[in-house]
Structure formats: C-alpha cells, structure tokens
Simulated scan of single mutants.
Amino acid sequence: MIEDYRFGNIRIDGKNYTSDVKIINEEVKPNWWRKEGHNLFPEDIKDILEAKPEILVVGTGAYGVMKISSQVRKLLEQEKIELIEAKTEKAAQIYNELLQSGKKVAFAAHLTC
C-alpha cells in the first residue's frame, strides 16, 4: 500500500523512496529512470507490460508535468490494459483503491514536477 506521497517522496509499505518508482505485482521497483525524464515511452514500462496488469495507474508528478506518449497509449490499448493517469497524489489514492478491490494493478510514478 502507498501510505503517503509528498513532492519528491513516497512511502510504500513503511519504506520511503525519493526517486521515481514502479509497483509491479505489489513489488516496488525503485529508482525508475525513463528514456526522456518527463515523457513516458513503451521501453520505460516494458516490465509492466510483461506483468500484464488489468490496469496501469500513472502518476504524472505533483504538477502533472510527465506526458504519456501516443505509443504507450496505443500499446496499452492493444494489450487491453486500462490506463489511468493523474497527478501523483491522486494516482496513489486510485492505486490503493484498485488494489484493495482486488484488481491486478501496476503503478508508475514521477515524484517531482
């Protein structure tokens, strides 16, 4: 569970992370770097695609600066993975709600901007 999010910091299962993270099959993948910092491309979420979640929740940053490429949108649609994008604080809440409801959900979050 995501317990708290503040600009540049997220607490998941009692541990704080200060760099971008992914959660795949309820396992935290810290220090997530993307091909281009504020853009999301298919190669940035290859491990998520391989896990085949029902839903991918993307936290686009505190101010929503990170953009999701059309290639990612198309690929998720082809793989029948629902995309939910929101500023990271809201995305964390959505992820928790979906997880508690029993959905197979992945999370990818930009923690700053």
Rank of each mutant, 00 (worst) to 15 (best):
K52F: 01
E50Q: 13
L76G: 01
G37F: 10
Y5G: 04
E79R: 14
Y63N: 14
K15V: 14
R34E: 01
I81Q: 03
I55N: 01
V58G: 01
K52G: 01
K80F: 04
V58T: 05
I12V: 13
I24C: 05
E43D: 13
W32H: 08
V72G: 02
S19I: 08
E85C: 06
A86I: 06
H38D: 06
G59N: 07
L83Q: 06
K29V: 14
I45P: 00
H38M: 08
L56G: 00
I84R: 12
I68D: 04
K87C: 01
V28P: 01
N31M: 09
A62V: 10
T88F: 01
S69N: 07
L76M: 04
L75Q: 14
A51P: 02
E82S: 11
E26I: 07
I12R: 03
I12W: 02
N16T: 11
N31H: 12
I68Y: 03
M66A: 09
E77Q: 15
L56F: 00
G61F: 04
T88G: 03
N25L: 10
R11G: 00
Y5H: 08
G61E: 05
A62H: 11
I81M: 05
E79W: 04
L76K: 03
K35L: 06
K46S: 10
F41L: 11
W32P: 03
I68N: 07
K15T: 15
Y5P: 02
W32K: 08
E85A: 12
D4F: 15
N39C: 14
L76A: 04
D20H: 10
D20S: 11
G14A: 13
L83C: 04
K29R: 14
E27I: 13
D4V: 12
E54F: 07
D47Q: 13
S70E: 13
R34H: 02
E82D: 08
K87A: 02
I24S: 06
V58W: 01
L76S: 03
L83K: 07
V58H: 03
E50V: 10
S69K: 09
K15I: 13
S19Y: 11
